[in-house]
């Protein structure tokens, strides 16, 4: 199964500890790479099939794909 880069957003305003959710997510197979407590975001990757299970974790607001940015080739002819 293909691994997808995801973010798990937890309800920090409701008192959920991102670290607690991070541990639970890891037990469910998510490869947790980064936790940003300031906004309650957990970043990592998991099988696409696991996304629904992660959404059911207590205190999880949503699970979404991680976005990326890509600069163009650096060139005076290409807007940067």
């Amino acid at each position: 199964m293909a691994q997808v880069d995801i973010k798990v957003i937890v309800d920090i305003k409701g008192g959920t500890d991102p670290e607690d959710v991070s541990r639970s997510a890891a037990q469910m197979g998510m490869q947790v790479e980064r936790v940003i407590p300031m906004i309650g975001a957990i970043y990592g990757s998991c099988d696409a099939d696991n996304i629904c299970k992660l959404e059911e974790l207590k205190g999880v607001l949503r699970v979404a794909p991680e976005s990326h940015v890509q600069l163009p080739p650096i060139s005076p002819k290409i807007p940067q």
């Binding site: 880069d5 973010k7 980064r34 940003i36 906004i39 970043y43 991680e66 990326h68 940015v69 600069l71």
Partner: peptide, 14 residues
């Protein structure tokens, strides 16, 4: 390579 992941950008902002 000019690529950035959301997690790295947000971490940098924080």
């Amino acid at each position: 390579n000019g690529t950035g992941r959301e997690r790295d950008i947000l971490t940098g902002m924080a």
